[in-house]
Deep mutational scan, measured.
Amino acid sequence: MTEYKLVVVGAGGVGKSALTIQLIQNHFVDEYDPTIEDSYRKQVVIDGETCLLDILDTAGQEEYSAMRDQYMRTGEGFLCVFAINNTKSFEDIHHYREQIKRVKDSEDVPMVLVGNKCDLPSRTVDTKQAQDLARSYGIPFIETSAKTRQGVDDAFYTLVREIRKHKEKMSKDGKKKKKKSKTKCVIM
C-alpha cells in the first residue's frame, strides 16, 4: 500500500485542523484551538488504489514558523489553505509557496490551493482571484467548507493525484537520464 505524506499549511484560523478532522473523523470542530502540530493517518481508496494518507496539520501562528522547514522537508505534497473571508490569509499563500519551493529546492512541488469556509456569506476573496492565482502557479484550486464537508475529500484526493503525477514524471525523467548515460565512448 502506497503511503502519501501530505502537509496542510496556511495562516492561523483558516480551518486547516477543521478540514483535516472532517476528512479523518467526519465531524466539524467549530471551536478554535490553535494547533502546534498534529499528525493523522487514514486509509482510503483513490482511483481504485488503496493508500495510506499521513497528514500533518501544522501551526499557522507566526511564533511556530521555525518548525516549518522541518515538516516541509518531509512532506510530499501540500494543501495551501486560505479562508475566503480573510484576504490576508490569501496573500500569505505566496509566502508559504515560496518557502516550500526553497526548502524542497524545487520549482515543481505537488500543491493544491484550497479556499476554505465557502459556506460563509462574508467572502472577501473572489473565486476568480483564487483561480487566477492557482493557474499562475500551475496547481489545482478547490473551494471547501469544513463545516458542510463540501470539497473536503476532493481537496485531499486531488493532492494525492498531483503527487502521483509528480512521481510518474520524475521516474520518466530518471529513465531518460539513465538511457543517456548508457551511451559509451570508444577510443581507438
Rank of each mutant, 00 (worst) to 15 (best):
Y40C: 01
P34I: 04
T20R: 01
L23Y: 13
V7W: 10
D57N: 01
L53S: 11
D47E: 11
A18N: 15
Q43C: 08
V44R: 11
G12T: 12
K42R: 13
L53I: 15
V9M: 12
E62Q: 09
T20S: 09
D54F: 05
T50H: 12
V29R: 10
E31I: 14
D30R: 14
I24R: 03
T35H: 01
E31G: 15
I21A: 11
K16I: 00
E49R: 09
L19N: 15
N26C: 08
L6R: 02
A18L: 02
L6S: 03
Q22G: 09
D30I: 09
V29P: 15
L56Y: 03
G15N: 01
V45G: 13
G48Y: 07
V8Q: 04
E3A: 15
L6C: 08
K16C: 06
G10V: 01
Q43T: 11
T20C: 06
V8R: 02
E63D: 14
Q22S: 10
V44N: 13
V45C: 14
A59Q: 03
Q43K: 15
K16E: 04
V8H: 02
Y64K: 05
K5C: 04
L53P: 07
E62P: 12
T35L: 01
L19V: 10
Q61A: 15
D38A: 00
L19E: 14
A11M: 14
V9G: 06
I24L: 11
V44C: 12
L52V: 15
D33T: 04
A11S: 09
L23S: 15
T2Y: 10
G60D: 03
K16V: 01
E37F: 03
V9C: 12
A18P: 02
L23C: 14
Q43I: 08
Y4F: 14
E62K: 08
Y64Q: 06
Q43E: 14
Q22V: 04
Q22D: 14
K42N: 10
Q43W: 05
Q61Y: 07
E62H: 09
P34S: 07
I24K: 04
I46G: 10
E3S: 14
G12H: 07
A59I: 01
G13R: 08
G60A: 03
A18H: 05
G60I: 01
Y40M: 01
E49S: 11
I36S: 02
V8Y: 02
I46K: 13
G15Y: 01
V45D: 14
Q22H: 10
V7H: 15
L19S: 15
Q22P: 02
E62D: 11
I55K: 02
D30A: 13
Y40I: 01
V29L: 09
A11Y: 08
E49C: 08
E62C: 08
A59V: 01
Q43F: 06
K16F: 00
L56N: 04
I46P: 08
A59N: 06
L52Y: 14
Q61S: 15
I46W: 08
A18Q: 13
I46D: 13
E3V: 11
K42P: 04
A18C: 11
S17F: 01
E3D: 14
D33W: 03
T50R: 12
I21K: 09
Y4G: 13
L19C: 12
V14P: 11
P34A: 09
D38F: 00
A59R: 03
L23V: 11
N26I: 05
D33P: 01
D38L: 00
G12M: 08
E31D: 13
G12I: 07
L52H: 14
T2M: 12
T50P: 13
I36Q: 00
Q25W: 05
D33G: 04
T58S: 12
L52C: 15
S39P: 00
G48M: 06
N26M: 07
G60H: 03
T20N: 07
G15T: 00
Y64L: 06
D30F: 11
G10S: 04
V29K: 09
D33N: 05
V45Q: 14
P34K: 04
S39G: 15
L19T: 13
S17T: 06
Y32V: 04
I46M: 12
K42W: 06
P34D: 03
E49N: 10
Y32H: 12
N26L: 06
E49Q: 14
H27C: 12
D54Q: 15
E62F: 07
G10F: 00
L56D: 03
V14D: 09
S39N: 10
Q22I: 03
V44Y: 13
I21M: 13
R41Q: 11
D33V: 04
D33K: 05
V8C: 08
T20K: 03
H27W: 12
E3P: 15
Y32W: 12
V44M: 14
K5Y: 03
Y32N: 05
E37I: 03
L23F: 14
E37Y: 03
E49T: 11
G48A: 08
D47L: 05
R41I: 06
I36H: 02
E49D: 11
D33H: 04
T35S: 03
H27T: 09
T35G: 01
V7K: 10
G10L: 00
H27M: 15
D57P: 01
R41D: 03
F28K: 03
Q25N: 15
D47P: 08
K5P: 08
V7N: 08
V14A: 12
G12D: 13
I55T: 14
T35K: 00
Q22E: 11
D57Q: 00
T35N: 01
T50S: 11
S39C: 15
H27V: 08
D47G: 11
I24W: 05
Y40V: 01
G48P: 08
R41F: 06
L6M: 13
P34C: 05
L19A: 15
R41A: 08
N26Y: 08
Y32A: 05
C51S: 10
V7D: 02
I36L: 06
K16S: 10
F28Y: 11
V14T: 12
A59Y: 02
E3K: 14
V8E: 03
G12F: 07
T50I: 11
A18M: 11
V8I: 11
T58W: 00
N26H: 10
K5D: 07
E63L: 04
V7M: 08
K5H: 07
K16W: 00
D38R: 01
I24E: 05
V14H: 10
V44T: 14
L52N: 14
V7T: 13
I21D: 09
A11F: 14
G48S: 09
Y4I: 11
Q22R: 11
L53A: 14
T58I: 05
L52D: 12
Y4A: 10
D54I: 05
T50A: 12
V9A: 07
A11L: 15
F28M: 07
D47F: 05
D38E: 01
G10Q: 03
I21P: 01
L53D: 03
L6G: 03
P34R: 05
